[in-house]
Design a protein around this nucleic acid. Structure first.
Lengths: 209, 209
DNA sequence: TAGATTGTTAATCGATTAACAATC
DNA sequence: TAGATTGTTAATCGATTAACAATC
């Protein structure tokens, strides 16, 4: 457990660092400058961020890739596997079920839910679709701590409530609504329209940004 | 055109404000406090953000919903429609093609591309899939200024280069790679693994965050 | 007018950048 | 040792929060 608070923004950069060095050999030693280039940031920021994890580098040389991978994975708690549940097996939900980053990564889709009787019972990507009503019951049984919501907006809050009853600790929400939930639940929203809207702003304010 | 710089973080909140009031009647007048609650922020922050857009409220009363919608839409440049191109019509790409937020919203999928001969020529959601090689040629012809990348990582950079040749101004990238591009191109990354990794961190550091 | 709420200023907080002593 | 690069401190920058005069 950490004794001090790592800035949220730094936490969000760690996965990018990890991804940037992921296919480099463990015995490579790279300077902060080189790694920063790969990750699309600056050497100063990289060193600052890494300093939150302790002494990772070798003065005069750089950072050993193997050690870096291990330490970042450790702080992100992805040295072990996480089981996740997907709720809403429409087009987006099915796409996520088959998504390589989820399929073979540190996050494994253990359960899938839908409210459509035609879908319940079917098996996609080795996961059998269950009735949404079973969420509160099945999640603790399978030790699932993260839920992914890919339902229409109208039912997203109801699904979130069920997930919370099922004792999830985090939710990745693709429905374009603001979910209400206790503070202890970590919610990440992915709203494609919102992303496009900010793009829209920036590409027309050319002279100022 | 703006005379001063609106903070990036504020820009990213405007779409959320818009979404929060979207289904309220135009003639309603709500206080910053009420709107902030809907959007999941504070009255202070909302007023500060809105102040960048000018005098929008009525002292002693609140903000007229209709005016707010119009002004936020104007600043985000979504009072007009944007045409977008999707590259990579796999599971995720197809899901986005059918995504309601894109289908009937301010962003219309005008073009779709793939490199798979079996897919080229087929029509999904009224959009005919074209050969990726045609990106630089077709984009300017259709006045498409935003590209969405839903290809495997290996070809994402190549696709980005083609989009840039086709004169896009912004890219929404779902491939888990850091894209290289000139500064004038606005890139937004959506990496599902990265999002889950930050969730993973936060739900284990319970006592500090 | 009295009450309410805005728009804005000032104070606080936090993150980024620059710089450099420590040290491999 | 000389050169290089870390880890960290201090300076800068920017965003959030608090507070309140202006005003509907």
């Amino acid at each position: 457990m950490l004794k001090f608070k790592i800035p949220e923004v730094a936490i969000e950069r760690f996965p990018i660092y990890l991804r940037s060095i992921d296919n480099l050999p463990d015995n490579f030693i790279l300077s902060s400058n080189k790694i920063a280039k790969l990750a699309g940031t600056t050497a100063n920021q990289l060193r600052k961020d890494l300093s939150y994890l302790g002494w990772l580098g070798i003065r005069g040389k750089g950072y050993k890739i193997g050690k870096l991978k291990k330490e970042i994975a450790r702080i992100l708690n992805i040295d072990k596997k996480w089981k996740v549940a997907i709720v809403g097996v429409g087009k987006l939900g099915s796409a996520l079920l088959a998504y390589p980053g989820l399929k073979k990564g540190k996050f494994q889709v253990e359960l899938a839910f839908d409210n459509d009787p035609l879908k319940i019972g079917k098996t996609i990507e080795k996961v059998t679709i269950q009735n949404v009503e079973k969420i509160p019951e099945l999640l603790p049984l399978h030790r699932v701590k993260i839920g992914i919501i890919t339902t229409p907006s109208e039912v997203a809050q109801d699904v979130a409530d069920k997930l919370i009853k099922g004792k999830v600790r985090g939710i990745l929400n693709f429905a374009p609504v603001q979910l209400a939930a206790p503070k202890r639940i970590k919610i990440r929203n992915v709203d494609i329209s919102i992303l496009l809207e900010t793009v829209s702003f920036f590409i027309t304010q050319k002279s100022l940004f």
